[in-house]
Amino acid sequence: MRRHEGLLALIRKLKTAPDRELRILLLGLDNAGKTTILRKLAAEDINHITPTQGFNIKSVQSEGFRLNVWDIGGQRKIRPYWRNYFDNTDVLIYVIDSADRKRFDETGVSSQQLLLQELVELMNEDKLGAVPMMVFANKQDLFNAAAASELAEGLNLHTIRDRPWQIQPCSALSGEGLKQPHSRLL
């Protein structure tokens, strides 16, 4: 029953909201490609991206919807501020660098374990309870990118039962797989 709550709420909102406005939150580790996705969604130039200190926000029109997309920096120092942006989120987009297999942090934790840890923490946040989640397996244009299915398994996505979720392979560079993140969840 509970796993459909978020989806039902989203459908209701899409159907009835007079403003047809959605708040989309982009999260993920640094260098995952959040800002590139944001700019690509807004049809802006992606050749001059810099690391995000703080956050970026853009309003994007898509299929008659106004998407307010919040792109929050992924740096470890900034992650504690993520929770300040959880309120009223309609869709959570979690971005992963699918080609980042070799990165281990100083405690010997692999980037996938780190991802897993961050994701579990996010899923336990009350304010994000039942918010539908789209996982973008980004950087599929790179030769060593992990397949979306491999990532889904590594991150135990199938154990998520309290919200609708989907994993989507994509390339922010080419724009492939990025279209209408909200309607794909329906």
Binding site: D30, N31, N47, H48, P51, Q75, R76, D105, E106
Partner: peptide, 26 residues
């Protein structure tokens, strides 16, 4: 590859990924 890099304000343990669109100019 070290956490030290964050002391001068890089994001993680390898500055390489932080130069991004500004490349060597940065």
């Amino acid at each position: 590859i070290s956490k030290n890099w964050t002391e001068i304000g890089f994001q993680g343990d390898d500055p390489q990924t932080d130069f991004r669109g500004m490349g060597c100019l940065g």
